[in-house]
Write a protein that binds this DNA or RNA. Sequence first.
DNA 1: ATATGTTCACTTGCATGCAAGAGGACGTGA
DNA 2: TCACGTCCTCTTGCATGCAAGTGAACATAT
Lengths: 224, 224
Amino acid sequence: MLEAQSMQLMVADRLRARIIAGDLETGVGLSEIALAAEYGVSRTPVREALKQLQTEGLVEIRPRVGTFVSTPTRADIVELFQMKEILEGAAARLFAARGEIPELEALRRNLETSDEAVARGDVAGYAAQVGDFHDLIVRGSGNRKLVTHYTMLMNQLAYPRLVATSLSRPGRLGESDAEHGRVLAMIVAKDEWTAERLMREHVRASQEALLGAMVFAGDADARS
Amino acid sequence: MLEAQSMQLMVADRLRARIIAGDLETGVGLSEIALAAEYGVSRTPVREALKQLQTEGLVEIRPRVGTFVSTPTRADIVELFQMKEILEGAAARLFAARGEIPELEALRRNLETSDEAVARGDVAGYAAQVGDFHDLIVRGSGNRKLVTHYTMLMNQLAYPRLVATSLSRPGRLGESDAEHGRVLAMIVAKDEWTAERLMREHVRASQEALLGAMVFAGDADARS
DNA sequence: ATATGTTCACTTGCATGCAAGAGGACGTGA
DNA sequence: TCACGTCCTCTTGCATGCAAGTGAACATAT
């Protein structure tokens, strides 16, 4: 399963995962020859993988200089959150219009698991559910273009890393879970516009919780 | 200006333009070696250009088989129009919140030119303004991520080719121009949510005019 | 005539060699 | 000590050679 596909796809997938997870230090460090040696391939597939990651917005290729992990500026982060709110809001609305689909049942199970995690005060457990919740909303839109571009944008945000931070604010855990529940209720009720509004408000609340927590955390990411 | 940048960028730009304009027949026909000969370069830059166009959704690379111009299915087109409505609606809202920016003055000039074209019954002249109008709205959002992803999605639609078709319905020309004017008025009035609503309604009306015209035109594009 | 097995031309995937440019290190002068 | 000019190493950009897989044409057997 690891070697079956093409080399460039393997390199691209692994590099993408490492960048999102934050394993790769931002700034310098992506030499084609070094990566080629690391993955046991030649420069060519590495090169093509890097080119794809560039159009995905994850790395920046400076001609004749080098390839670097993209460092989102503060303005980038603001824009990405705007896009998150727009796309997830629209997705919730489209979801609500579709009625009973497999994603809806998955969403109900997600809420049950989340409620239990909150009841236990299990932040890590809840954080894991949050990612699934948002992915389910987006996939439940039934619009594959939306899913694709949403994924690309959230990869630029390295969102999974941020969720835990946003939940560190006292009381945010329960608020977030309650907001999820209200969104689900509106989807079940097929109230498209209220679903969109609540989803947007939820995204904005999460963003504010995150930005607030980041200030106190000393601005771990996002150097200007 | 044509040869200054890198070869792969030139090839990518030219190919993209040809695909959007419809010069390249959909389906088969993008051999790396043929394109290399045509542009006077080797396979390598052609290959990298094709890879980029693939992640942009314009071509499809089937491993060991060949590269083909992507043919949007009917479902793809529906999804793309949904995205167009979502993104342009959000852009109009963000635009309205920004007040006096250079794009606003450009938008006023665009409307004047459009009004004159409509008064003359100049369909081609108006069609040219339509593209600019929508681009100005999107760029006026002030969100570069929105601009980037909107552009990618509209490239997949090969939108410029479709505008003329959508305007072929009797009376649509004046309707479209009037809708543009109302959107502009709401942006000037800084009424964010009405701007978004009117913009979305405009996009939907254009889509319906297009789909209606395409049925009568014998479904020139969009084979399933 | 139809179905089937085989071959073959053509495609892209990957490896490697060479060239050109960028940026820093280093030496030199004041 | 500081400013400046030169060189040198390292980077990617492009060209090319080889290998492997695909799909269709073709011959063959039923």
